[in-house]
Design a protein around this nucleic acid. Structure first.
Length: 218
DNA sequence: AAAACGGGGGC
DNA sequence: GCCCCAGTTTT
């Protein structure tokens, strides 16, 4: 990597982030401390934009906010509430299944361990880590596509899959950065380092960026 | 009109 | 590893 070490980059981003709006982080922050809401929000957000997920989750949580009450909703009710998130039919079924499983096997409480969370259908490493960090405030590294893209763009690491990125970050990233790294990079990713046409001319770490796979810059 | 977008499951 | 999943947004 040229130019900045990771401490410098994080320090710079922390300064920059203060002046930006961050819709996704706001949605996520609203769920903070409620592992069940974090979990359900994550399911809804799979392969769908956050601007779509947010109102859908509001509609669903208006109907039920706990596994025992949510499992009583009909599939149609849930589908109607969460439309038009992607895969809304599958997700409605998954949500009911997860609620039933939580009530039957975990006394209605979302488990705190990654390995237990991964047993649920529809829960992968991103979701599991988000529940652990955001829901329970425990150490973890949540790698979504923002984190994956940005880490690879600016050259800190070179990985092919988000799971691999998480593994590398667990080895290389000082633990004091773990809890905040997702919020920080997602905010950066939405405001400047966007997937398409990022605002590289305004980016203070662009000098050490590989700009992978990006065709248009401003 | 066509490509890009975002996680996980199943094989 | 590779392909599929649905609906919205960007080019």
């Amino acid at each position: 990597m040229n130019g900045f070490d990771i401490h410098s980059v994080i320090a710079i981003l922390r300064q920059e982030v203060r002046q930006w709006q961050s819709p996704a982080v706001t949605i996520v922050s609203q769920r903070e401390g409620d592992p069940f809401k974090v979990l359900i929000s994550c399911i809804l957000s799979l392969r769908t934009q956050d601007t779509t997920t947010s109102p859908a989750s509001e509609r669903l949580f208006a109907l039920a906010t706990t596994p025992d009450t949510m499992m009583l909703l009909s599939k149609d009710e849930i589908e109607a509430a969460i439309y038009p998130v992607g895969f809304y039919r599958n997700k409605a079924g998954q949500i009911i299944d997860i609620c039933r499983q939580l009530v039957a096997d975990y006394d209605g409480k979302v488990p705190e361990e990654i390995d237990q969370l991964l047993m649920f259908k529809g829960v992968g490493r991103k979701t599991a880590n988000l529940v652990v960090t955001l829901g329970y405030g425990k150490p973890g590294i949540c790698v979504d596509t923002h984190v994956h893209r940005i880490c690879n763009r600016w050259g800190y690491i070179a990985t092919r899959t988000p799971d691999e990125t998480e593994k590398v970050l667990r080895q290389c990233l000082p633990s004091e950065y773990w809890l905040g790294i997702n919020d920080l990079l997602v905010t950066f990713g939405q405001n400047l380092c966007r997937p398409l046409s990022p605002y590289c001319s305004r980016c203070r770490i662009a000098v050490s960026c590989k700009k992978l796979g990006v065709s248009s810059f401003r």
